[in-house]
Nucleic acid binder design. Structure first.
Lengths: 249, 249
DNA sequence: GAATGTGAAGGCTTTCACAGCT
DNA sequence: AGCTGTGAAAGCCTTCACATTC
């Protein structure tokens, strides 16, 4: 989930469990799709399938929000969209800044899912002066020097860090000092922040490593090691420093 | 976590809990950093801090791998790096394909974290014939027509989907039919896959929505709604279809 | 009849706290 | 003396299954 510490303990924030909060965006997306097809109502079973969860879990999740369904009928799509949006705080406008406009930062700036869900990219910030003024996704890249004034001028409380790992903590410190209280971190490093600041982390290589773990298990169990062996043979000689052949014991 | 279904139930795969598997990459990264600084041993307390977890959790996690520490001393860094790498399957080479070379796909192709941890980008694939042959991150973009042959020629079992949502399921189906059994999905859509195929999902806008939820709580609790109100006032008029003002009840 | 809302049961995960090595 | 490894306790989360409502 989010950071190491920093989340207030299981956020009793009006009683909605973290696990439920994490699924609300899923439901919202499925509901938005139904809404666009003008579907008026949906059952927990149908919606659960569309969102990729099971229906008991979905009903339990919704029960934390209130009794928004009708027995024998299901849920009113528009109404639920509104309630979940409100619960997530998407009925207000959230200006965000993206710091670090490399490949990933540019991809994020261009990502439609932000603008379409209550988020507005207030500014793109990069430390490289040579990039300043360059347009990305319709916005000019601004220099890190302006970071503090951008934050306060736009009432920004959410920052996205897409810098190299080495720069992330300093950027984080400056964001927090300037008033940012929620950070989405794409840099592969652990950020330390004061109490009251939320950090969520997205790490591309971690996800792949988890897949590799399960993939390895499959190969071992189901293919009798044959494929694993074939792959091992292919391994390049000087791959990287991560698997030193030496070891004690 | 991963998909809706599809994970074998709590993967008893030699007894390592999912939650632990998800943290192993974190430990590995922290350990790799220590290794680069030639630190020989580390205590659970120090390593836990570096990885952003608490030490009891870390020790419990390691206990599932075996007894790799020394009481009164700590853990041997190099040895642990090797053991965790092996457990995660990173001592073998994992060829991956990235499908959909837009902004995000290009960012992924350039992402150093892949190559440095046992993963090798075997090919970049895009449906746009105009892009075919263009070089990205040192590799030529290849056309979707070649997908099946690329998969089988390279023994690829892990695929990364970075296409628009509309194309994701079809790409997924083709990957699976060609032999891919693990998928990392960046497209904002639920993929359905047969049993035995793992899907993990990374969704940028979902992470932001979760942050917004907590941010909203903070604003309400700590600032007496003042900032929230200020932000609300700023909301652009015709934002999007996600919060229709209408609703029953 | 159909589908929600929810106690209760069952599983996982985290945390505690201390026995057991070095 | 210091630090790991781990039962036991506590807390979450998921799933079951059914009373309740429309």
């Amino acid at each position: 989930m989010a950071t190491g510490r920093t989340h207030r303990p299981a956020t009793r924030s009006r009683g909605i469990p973290e696990a439920t909060v994490a699924r609300l965006p899923l439901y919202l997306r499925a509901l938005t799709a139904l809404s666009e097809r003008s579907v008026p109502t949906v059952s927990s079973e149908e919606l659960a399938t569309a969102a990729g969860v099971n229906s008991a879990k979905l009903r339990k999740d919704f029960s934390y929000l209130g009794s928004y369904g009708t027995r024998g009928v299901g849920y009113d799509v528009e109404y639920l969209v509104y309630q979940i949006s409100r619960e997530l705080g998407l009925t207000q406008d959230w200006p965000v800044v993206i710091v670090g406009i490399g490949n990933l930062g540019a991809a994020l700036a261009n990502y439609g899912g932000f603008a379409s869900r209550g988020f507005r990219v207030a500014a793109l910030i990069d430390a490289d002066a040579a990039q300043t003024g360059k347009m990305v996704a319709g916005l000019p890249i601004r220099h890190t020097d302006e970071l503090e004034s951008i934050i306060s001028d736009n009432l920004v409380s959410i920052g996205v860090i897409a810098t190299p790992a080495g720069a992330a903590q300093e950027v984080c410190d400056r964001l927090v000092a300037a008033g940012v209280t929620s950070i989405l971190n794409f840099a592969p490093t652990v950020l330390s922040v004061p109490d009251g600041v939320d950090v969520r982390k997205v790490d591309l290589s971690i996800e792949l490593q988890i897949l590799a773990f399960h993939e390895q298990r499959k190969a071992g169990e189901e293919l009798g090691e044959a494929v694993a062996t074939a792959r091992k043979a292919v391994r390049r000689p000087g791959s990287d420093g991560d698997v030193p052949a030496v070891m004690p014991v």
